[in-house]
């Protein structure tokens, strides 16, 4: 009884199978196409050095999208991410200033930030599961609260972080750029969770909650874990943001949650839960950023930039949705 609109019959079944196993293949394909487009126009773009700089500026979104995906897999959503960034941002900056910008002070500040972010996420999860509330509206409400706390720490943009913070993110360690280390780190965490079976359990909750419950999964606890992870990665995103802005702002992070969600969707995650991969969201995030660059380098009028961006995202989503539809049809 599906509304059959467009059937992607020209796509060979073999490819459909591959997409099913790795929902992010589509995203990777788009990344490659966009890279080629950029390379044709501006060969310098694809140089390692320039890509490293790009990667550094993409990091905040990539981390946020990565964290958001764990929540999306369970069929939830985290609209408080943007405000969480603000909260963690001002706390880290305040603590750094408290310790006068010393190295131990910075390390301490960063740890505090990570703890605060994770805690905020866990609180989200606890409120949702204990009070049995809808994720969308609840995380919106907690987002307002986090933003309020951020304002209480710092009521206007300001503060200063040593430049070393900035240089750290531009540098490299063992010849490998720091952003790459960071990415490897978060992918490592993902692999750890995957091997522990946690990712499968999150997917199970999003796919069929009752079934997951009947299979013996402690659904509430796993949902709290997902929100905690979202908070944790959001804190990492904030650290990357400070690496760019080297200052604090209670208004930081506005709109990040929506970009993160759309990155996850472009990366192949199903917003109704149960399907997708945080790795896909990384590529989704890269697409979100690359589209801007393509539009810029092709000299498209500023007026059309946003329009193009919106249309390209809708196009990518449509293709993904049609693919999913045709997959579920071939199930019969």
């Amino acid at each position: 009884m599906n509304t059959n609109f467009i059937k992607l019959q020209w796509l060979r079944t073999g490819w459909k199978e591959r997409f099913r196993k790795a929902p992010y293949l589509l995203a990777i394909a788009i990344v490659i196409i966009l890279m080629i487009l950029l390379g044709i126009r501006n060969p310098g773009y694809l140089k390692l050095a320039s890509l490293t700089i790009k990667l550094k500026s993409w990091m905040p979104l990539l981390f946020a999208a990565f964290g958001q995906t764990f929540v999306i897999l369970t069929g939830g959503i985290d609209l408080s991410q943007g405000s969480m960034i603000a909260l963690v941002n001002v706390i880290i900056v305040q603590v750094i200033m408290l310790f006068g910008g010393s190295l131990p002070g910075m390390l301490f500040a960063v740890s505090v930030g990570i703890i605060v972010g994770t805690l905020a996420g866990i609180i989200n999860g606890l409120i949702l599961t204990r009070l049995r509330l809808q994720p969308l509206i609840t995380t919106y409400a907690t987002g307002i609260i986090w933003r309020g706390f951020a304002l209480s720490v710092m009521n206007e943009p300001g503060g200063e972080v040593p430049m070393s913070f900035y240089y750290f993110f531009s540098g490299s360690f063992l010849f490998i750029p720091i952003p790459v280390w960071f990415l490897s780190f978060i992918v490592g965490i993902y692999l750890f969770l995957l091997r522990r079976g946690a990712v499968t359990q999150l997917k199970a909750i999003g796919g069929y909650t009752i079934g997951a419950f009947e299979s013996g999964i402690n659904v509430d606890r796993k949902r709290v874990l997902a929100y905690g992870l979202s908070g944790f990665f959001t804190a990492l995103a904030t650290i990357a943001i400070i690496g760019e802005t080297i200052s604090g702002s209670p208004l930081a992070g506005t709109g990040y949650e929506l970009e993160a969600i759309s990155s996850a969707a472009i990366g192949g995650a199903s917003l109704s839960g149960g399907f997708g991969s945080p790795i896909g969201s990384l590529f989704g995030g890269i697409i979100t950023r690359l589209v801007n660059d393509v539009i810029f380098f092709y000299g498209i009028d500023v007026k059309y930039q946003q329009l193009m961006q919106g249309l390209i995202i809708i196009l990518a989503l449509s293709f993904g949705a049609l693919l999913a539809q045709s997959l579920s049809r071939s199930d019969k």
């Binding site: 079934g211 997951a212 299979s215 149960g274």
Partner: peptide
């Protein structure tokens, strides 16, 4: 009604 998760 089975406790299986369709996508897994």
């Amino acid at each position: 009604e089975l406790s299986l998760i369709p996508d897994l």
